[in-house]
């Protein structure tokens, strides 16, 4: 494998004065030299970089004191997840421009918190949580349960009225019952759609993309079906309670 200086040489600026501090990475062969105030790091054999696990890359990044000298390790780390984060953001946003904005935000956020990564979970899970939270928050702030919310078709009792509660105890009992019915009465996919729509306030279109629903009516069909099942189960239970 050879180095192609005209295409694979990347110059990293690692300080405000790039003439004094910079790093050079050869993408093709994973060699790098980091130079700071006339001193160079010696050869950093980035050949091993692609063989390192995500967690080892973070360790190298942190050993190098984070930025600027650890930059190549972080770059390699993030590069591995470009496609996954891009896909996640595309499914959330539904368009390429929106997805690009989201993905750039996700990586910027991950970058700014990389110093504080404590390996309590794998890096991939950590990055997923950042992507998930950022994208869900962005969706929520953009559209607080927009027109595709099913307010008009809410979870009502047999009389068509929302159930009233005489006490906190009744409310807690209903919540406990509802959680139990979510598992016992619904399919896993229905349960996931309900969770994303009601707990995460996600638009139905984004849910359909995230869960790869390919039926014509998308997530709405699952919501309607789930509500019907929940109502039916509730009716059964209420009937059983009556003397």
């Amino acid at each position: 494998m050879a180095c192609f200086l005209d295409t694979n040489l990347l110059l990293y600026s690692i300080s405000r004065d790039p003439a004094k501090s910079f790093g050079i990475l050869f993408r093709g062969c994973d060699c790098a030299v980091l130079i700071h105030n006339g001193l160079n790091s010696g050869p950093v054999c980035l050949r091993v970089m692609t063989a390192l696990s995500d967690e080892e890359l973070i360790a190298r990044y942190q050993e190098a004191g984070g930025r600027p000298l650890g930059t190549p390790f972080a770059e390699e780390l993030f590069r591995r997840y470009y496609s996954r984060v891009a896909l996640w953001c595309f499914r959330v946003a539904g368009d390429r421009d929106g997805a690009t904005d989201l993905a750039q935000d996700v990586f910027a956020k991950a970058w700014s918190h990389l110093d504080s990564f404590r390996a309590e979970s794998r890096f991939s899970t950590w990055l997923f949580m950042i992507a998930r939270n950022h994208c869900f928050n962005a969706l929520r702030s953009k559209a607080r349960l927009r027109e595709d919310s099913l307010d008009a078709e809410s979870f009502t009792d047999q009389t068509g009225q929302a159930p009233g509660f005489d006490s906190d105890l009744e409310r807690q009992q209903l919540l406990t019952l509802g959680r139990s019915l979510m598992v016992s009465e619904l399919t896993p996919l229905e349960s996931q759609v309900m969770t994303l729509h009601f707990a995460q306030e996600m638009p139905l279109s984004a849910i359909a993309r995230l869960l790869r629903l390919d039926n014509p009516s998308g997530a709405k069909a699952y919501i309607v079906s789930a509500k019907r099942k929940l109502k039916s189960a509730l009716s059964r239970l209420q009937g059983a309670d009556r003397p």
Partner: peptide, 12 residues
């Protein structure tokens, strides 16, 4: 009543 569904599905 969406509030009930939200509470049923949100993390505890």
């Amino acid at each position: 009543m969406n509030e009930i569904l939200r509470q049923i599905t949100e993390p505890g």
